[in-house]
Design a protein around this nucleic acid. Sequence first.
DNA 1: AATAATACCTTATGCGCAAAAGGTGTACTG
DNA 2: CAGTACACCTTTTGCGCATAAGGTATTATT
Lengths: 340, 340
Amino acid sequence: MITIKEIAKQLNMSTTTVSNVIHGKTKEVSPATIKIVEDYLKQVDYVPNINARNLAQNESKIIGVALKARADKYENLLMDPFVSELIGGIEESIRNAGYFMMLYISSDIDKIMRQVSTWNVDGLLLFGMLGDDGIRVSQKYKKPIVCIDTYTIEGIKHFVNVGLDDEKGCFDMVNYMIELGHKKIAFLSDNLNGVDYARFSGYKRALKENGLSFSEDMFFKIRPRKEDIDESLDEICERAKDFDAIMCVSDLYAVQVMCALKDKGVNVPEDISIAGFDDTLLGQLHRPALTTVHQSVKEKGVLAATTLLDRIGGKKTPKQISLPTTLVIRDTVKARKKEK
Amino acid sequence: MITIKEIAKQLNMSTTTVSNVIHGKTKEVSPATIKIVEDYLKQVDYVPNINARNLAQNESKIIGVALKARADKYENLLMDPFVSELIGGIEESIRNAGYFMMLYISSDIDKIMRQVSTWNVDGLLLFGMLGDDGIRVSQKYKKPIVCIDTYTIEGIKHFVNVGLDDEKGCFDMVNYMIELGHKKIAFLSDNLNGVDYARFSGYKRALKENGLSFSEDMFFKIRPRKEDIDESLDEICERAKDFDAIMCVSDLYAVQVMCALKDKGVNVPEDISIAGFDDTLLGQLHRPALTTVHQSVKEKGVLAATTLLDRIGGKKTPKQISLPTTLVIRDTVKARKKEK
DNA sequence: AATAATACCTTATGCGCAAAAGGTGTACTG
DNA sequence: CAGTACACCTTTTGCGCATAAGGTATTATT
């Protein structure tokens, strides 16, 4: 690896001159010298040492992407299609802006923050944080932060957040179900925090605004861990007998439930209607094709990254950015049969 | 961010002493001093500046993961479930070893290599490289390299490669199909390079060893790009009428074909048998559930990363490591009906 | 008692880069 | 023609860290 110093020596000039050429400071260097240096740079294929540059500049050109791991559905967060698509959008934006991405995955926020500090990252993208985590992070870290899909418990936004209109998405879908005549509609999720809670709220509002009541038994809690999932799905199928439809908090759950139902001889949408949320490949490539709420996950990642980049660049951005949802009507939600 | 220098000043000692404590060089420092320094380090929550450390040490603790992007099925490589699962395994191993992962995604090998040089990464994991790319990379980069799923055209392995017994996996599946009475078996893929070629070879060997002949019209070339996929699937469905079964090079294609067939009223496996490869969620959550060749993608990532880490640590490793495949018999390949 | 070894310090140096500060000579201004 | 602006250089400094080299006691060895 050749250094600026070495180049300067070979060319019989100072390192500053070489450095100036590299940084395009044309006013400081004569055209003739620029030519000499540029030719030589190309000849030896000079590549700067980023560690040295960062040290001198006190910046890093790194965007930290911190994912709080939940020991949950997937052994590794990246295996969640939602996460990988999100990261896909983020990575692309960061790379296009000339930055680098460093991924920090851990369930331990303090560990993540130590690593972020150690690399002196220029900005931070947070996913999967709850309210109190966020507060701790913001105390430790003074550079720009953008959260993704973060609802704080008290509804207070401590930082910029890029999210989705989850509440409305779910509201629209449940409304649509009710329009088709469904009365007993269950809501299925593994928890009721953050995003899932917002969707749940949309579900309840749709019931309420249509004069339908909600009771505890209409919440289907799925246990998605490998060791529980089969038993959990059995339970759900059993409970589903009394229902017209199920609003699932994600496509994955919707498809899993549909498979379990089919294996038991229950037909969707003839016997029961099922809706998903997210509009993933899984639902698109199922038959019957899944009726679901579309969100552009990649776009969410892109938006989060560009917002962060804007903030790093000193631009002002809104504190809350919400992407819209759209209904994708396919084949798993149909009009309720009268005779049921 | 507090520095060693500052700590030394506060504690009235030299930076070397502080540095020695940080690195656990207990022989060089008196127990009393160690205690003082350690307490102070904790108190101020000292975090080292990795840029400075790397510069001084000429190492980086970074593993570069270079993905050669193909402008192909997915707009962004990370959206490919295979890739994200692979990265999931890699990331986990790297993190557990105390290293950091930096992702380089580009279709331009030279650009990737410049970035790898600029960060002075300690080792390189390569995915999606063809033979000639690999040769160029190895000329530019002298630190340990491990390839994933790389078949060189001439069969020469220039570096350590972690792969799969693709040929045998496909051979076994096609053999199984033939045992069930299938005679006209198509092979479906988007190309015949690298991994896909190995699978294709297994397919042809199975035909040959069972006395069946192969002709060009038995190769179904799918065009997976968004703008082509529907037309391509229509063609394939049309051509499929003459066949007993299709061996698909991936689960994704298998499921896509099954959906297209179903939409045209063709039943799997009654009218035609379909097999996939990879054993992804997509096949598991389809009905009928996909018969496929299992590989552990995560394990592949883990193995590649640990092999690279071993090499960085100076250990010797085999030059070629192949993971085994297993047949997953589900519902999309059944005995051929006599009357056809 | 002379020498060697050891324990525990500090000072000094350099990694590669960017930039502040400090030249020198030429052209331009009034 | 003094004064000033500017073009084009170089020297020097420091980012934070690791470590080689250099101390000074104190203890062990013969």
